[in-house]
Design a protein around this nucleic acid. Structure first.
Lengths: 383, 383
DNA sequence: TTAATAACCACACTTTGTGTGTAGAAATAA
DNA sequence: TTATTTCTACACACAAAGTGTGGTTATTAA
């Protein structure tokens, strides 16, 4: 049984029951990325003619995805009315399930996070978690005055890799309860809304593609420093999933020996513990991090070879134009990790080669939750 | 100045001047891959309706890309006429420029190699090579009775990585003369035909996607064992080029120290030479290879760690469903290399994970030349 | 012999784009 | 002030490429 969209009829195209066709999505995403623009600009920057842009924008305005604002003067000629996103047109709900916490988030059509909260459930117990999560979602929508028929669906970010189907995961052991189950059916039944499921690193990458590095890069790798260490790849603006849908599963790069020294924050917590600094969760690390703590420099030195190996592997295979340092690492730590990267910008004949940009993600908090909330938007109305 | 297609007007669609639109290409490629099929099969295996398939096939038959053959009976109902590829409809010409040889090849619409020959030119001297190559192409077309208006264009495979534009390469030093030049304009001017340019590993991968592993895999990595060691990635049936267009440039994976022990056949020739076995070219290695030669086992052991690192890097980032061992390595050597691959099929909790298939390519001779000849076909009429 | 099935094909229709042409509004240049 | 320019707005005819309906025909199973 597939859950049908619950969104308003006025938002759905009568012809094919989708929310927006590809050219409409191109226009919505262009308006969003530009933070408002004119029909003139859209005509100049798409393959569409003036007449087509006019008709498509008209339709999107009448279906309330876009607003017409004041006119702007661009030299001679009639001024262009500004076209703006109607941020309240549709929303995406995001849920991230991590080993130590479950978070909930709502994003509007502008990809702005409306709310982000920790849900007080035990992620290790599926049966008790699902109804609590469902209640939390509906309560959260009500609190924020969001009608249910404006919600495209729920994106779920979970750590682990896929096995067979696109929605069956093998999770880290603390999340064993979510393993080997078709998650879409599970969540759709629980939430009574359409559901998307994605690996947490890829969810972070999607968030970055819509709000951060994606403005300048259409092919980049997103390093996700969480309890573990993962990676999401964006190619041609879309998530790259590979053959078995496990692209970016960095554990497969390392030998068992190297695994112990990979840049996973869970390992950092252990090292800090040994130095007498006891941090109980990645959450707390984010808020309390001090780069002068005893053990930080040592850990950076310890993981540096594995971090550089990951970057070499990405450059050799994916060849991204940017590598984004994200996940739940504290901002200062991201900068320390970037500083630890070797800059191998010469080929074997000593000729210069272009390096990818190393970027510290500045999406706040847990990027996989906001990324999860953006999944429905990305899949229905954006590009 | 862009060279216009020289193919017959009867093969080009009047509406948009392309050779075939996407649905037509889907059908042509399905007929090709099936080695002939019925409209019934096409209808069942595409998103197209019976009526649309009928209309599209009709158009392709009247434009001579397809032939209608005998009918086959499939149980009750009217028998279906067989639809076959007209192999002589269009052709692609391929040129590969390697450090030690220049090869020329012609492929028909069935992706069958019509001819493959070594061109007697010095690849190190561009100005003398171009006119000789042009003459060789036209002579070769004449010899094989192929009219010029059936040729889609020339694909060129060259070793090296891209710099900036998609047709500007930085080549290995022996091919310095082809470096830092927009190659499309260069070759189009010389050949007076449309030209495609591709890295030789990716050209091999494209060949494999049309004639070998591509029948079963839409995402695979193609390891190209040549004088150097490269890789081409196919994703969703198409070449994956990454952000800077240098996906698969495996040199970037290795440290300078590892580079000396990477699985490049040029290095094998050096090791064999030290053992008193003097092979003058990769060509000769292909025809005369003996796995019992002193030095072969030692070389396999020497490169094994770097080969496995490449595979780990590919599995972590691209996650292909197959890894094809190709390039100019002799068949026996490919099998030895496959045997040297560790099979890391357990995750860090000891759970089983699906391995990619390790496949020895059985395209004969130099795959990059045939791959080059397939470039125009892939880009104009196949998918 | 007859019913069922599948292929074939004509036709009307829909969606989604294009190009042409016209009218009008507002800013700038002379 | 007036003319020019630039851009919006909109009507209309048209084209490409798909769909659905329904009828005809060929073959097999009962």
């Amino acid at each position: 049984m597939t859950i049908k969209p619950v969104i308003s009829h006025s938002l759905v195209r009568s012809s094919d029951a989708t929310v927006a066709n590809w050219n409409e999505r191109l226009i919505i995403d262009m308006v969003r990325r530009e933070g408002g623009t004119t029909r003139r600009y859209i005509t100049a920057n798409t393959h569409l003619s003036q007449q087509s842009v006019h008709r498509l924008v008209d339709g999107l305005v009448s279906r309330n995805f876009l607003h017409i604002g004041d006119s702007v003067i661009n030299g001679r000629g009639q001024p262009s009315p500004l076209i703006n996103i109607n941020a309240e047109a549709v929303y995406g709900v995001g849920v991230s399930i991590n080993t130590d916490s479950v978070r909930l988030s709502i994003a509007d059509l502008n990809c702005q996070e409306i709310t982000n909260l920790k849900v007080d459930v035990d992620p290790a117990n599926r049966d008790s978690a699902l109804p609590i999560l469902r209640d939390a979602i509906y309560e959260c929508l009500e609190t924020n005055d969001i009608r249910k028929d404006r919600v495209l669906g729920v994106g779920v970010a979970i750590s682990g890799y896929r096995m067979g189907a696109k929605d069956v995961f093998v999770t880290p052991e603390p999340l064993e309860t979510w393993s080997n189950t078709p998650l879409i059916e599970l969540f759709e039944t629980a939430f009574q809304m359409p559901v998307w499921v994605e690996n947490n690193a890829t969810a972070g990458a999607i968030g970055e593609s819509l709000k951060g590095a994606g403005f300048a890069h259409s092919c980049f790798a997103y390093l996700s420093f969480n309890s573990g260490f993962g990676c999401g790849v964006i190619y041609e603006g879309k998530p790259f999933c590979g053959g078995f849908n496990n692209s970016g599963e960095m554990g497969r790069l390392y030998t068992p020996d190297q695994m112990l020294h990979r840049p996973a924050l869970g390992e950092l917590l252990l090292r800090l513990g040994k130095s007498g600094i006891h941090i109980e969760s990645i959450d707390k690390l984010y808020t309390n991090f001090n780069p002068n703590w005893h053990g930080v420099d040592e850990w950076i030195a310890e993981v540096k070879p594995q971090l550089n190996l990951a970057i070499r592997a990405l450059r050799a295979t994916v060849d991204p134009t940017a590598i984004v340092f994200g996940g739940e690492a504290p901002p200062v730590l991201k900068r320390l990790l970037i500083a630890a990267c070797d800059e191998l910008d010469l080929d074997r004949y000593g000729r210069e080669i272009t390096l990818p940009a190393y970027i510290a993600s500045d999406l706040p908090g847990d990027p996989s939750t906001i990324g999860a909330a953006l999944l429905p938007l990305k899949d229905c109305v954006l590009t």
